[in-house]
Design a protein around this nucleic acid. Structure first.
Lengths: 216, 216
DNA sequence: ACATAAATCGGTTACTCACCCGATTTACAA
DNA sequence: TTGTAAATCGGGTGAGTAACCGATTTATGT
């Protein structure tokens, strides 16, 4: 079963180069080409390819927006970005648009072939320098959740009360669920606020979200 | 400049197989081997390799914890996980431990070589099925930020007031900064709460964080 | 010209909050 | 044994909140 592919790039020379390169691969069949975003969208709807090799710098619309359009009508067609851009910005926006692969034009030809095969198989190919960016993003994004467990000297009971406070419960409600007096809850709250140097329930909520105690 | 590598796996046969495979690559030099986590940590401190090829299922300590230890003392040594596990769980925990690559044992030998070279170059190699997991995680994690801009019919002024409310300001403070009566601020707050079906400032804070209006 | 929405201002009321004061019991460590 | 810390309970006060009621002015559009 051949991989049915559409080439999208506004430069004829680039397309012919890619055609030559990919023609040597018997697994790949180029069913159409496009020099603009609108041509690409039309070609995809007509041919329903397995993979779309998408440039980002197109004359009429960015490859990112083109990919979003494609994914609306033909979500089964995998999109591989092939571009000169190696910035964080373009990379992440292409992922959000629904791309299954991202390969800079400076990459080795074998890497492009790999990316196409991977995308056709429903997986994701990330060029190493960009994989690094994504991992970095993952680590900083989930950092707060992992940075918890150090709750600045709060006792067990205080942490328990904090969880309910941040959830939006009143002193009375918390007292009921924990089977203690609302005044005791208020006392715990005072101690929490003093220890954390916070002065309102809203600051408590933000603190709890930062520490991963509750979700927004 | 050869890539100096340490093999970590508790099965002698696996190590000898990898030794054979990697010996054929002139770029790679195996400087040590280890059959357990403690051996691995000692070997890394002694040889300071460019890359550590790390199994996860070790007898004394998991490869994940071993990687964490390694990264504390020798952060320059890149770790590539080579394992039978393809679960989300192990993969993400290995990333958090500081791995620069993750290759399942079922992968093709060339992919392992690529991963080692990529890791030695300071980049990150992700096997496609796992890259897909990471991209998926990225898309769901950042979904709230992108889901904003649709602020459920709030007027400009209401959004402005909401931002200050979620920041923790009182009606009086907001009135001062916006040069309007605190009663007007309260009125805006009422309208906001009715439109969003929220009933406390704390819920407003969580809403604002979900929508990306403020940071926790 | 009339309707609609937005933005503004005022009053009232029950409730909660944040902060202060006091206290006892329990438990664990110096 | 004598602290110290944690957890519990209570009173009091001024400020703020959430919820209703009312109103006017100013656009914007039909």
């Amino acid at each position: 079963m051949k991989i049915r592919l559409i080439l999208v790039d506004d430069h004829e020379v680039v397309r012919s180069g890619l055609r030559m390169l990919l023609a040597s691969e018997s697994e790949i069949e180029i069913v159409a080409e496009a020099g603009s975003a609108v041509e690409a969208i039309a070609a995809v709807q007509e041919h329903q390819p397995d993979v779309v090799l998408m440039d980002i710098g197109l004359p009429d619309m960015s490859g990112i927006d083109a990919t979003k359009e494609l994914k609306k009508t033909n979500p089964e067609s995998a999109v591989v970005a092939l571009t000169i851009h190696e910035d964080e910005e373009y990379f992440f926006r292409m992922l959000e648009a629904g791309a299954s692969g991202y390969v800079p034009k400076r990459a080795a030809p074998e890497e492009l072939l790999t990316a196409i095969q991977v995308a056709a198989a429903g997986e994701v190919y990330l060029y190493p320098s960009l994989a690094k960016l994504l991992v970095k993003d993952y680590l900083v994004a989930d950092a707060p959740a992992r940075a918890s467990n150090e709750l600045d000297g709060l006792t067990d009971r205080e942490q328990e009360v904090l969880a309910h406070l941040a959830d939006g419960a009143s002193n009375a409600e918390i007292g009921e669920t924990l089977s203690i007096s609302p005044k005791t809850v208020a006392r715990h709250r005072e101690n929490i606020m003093r220890k954390l140097n916070l002065h309102s329930r809203i600051e408590l909520v933000k603190y709890a979200i930062r520490k991963g105690i509750i979700r927004p």
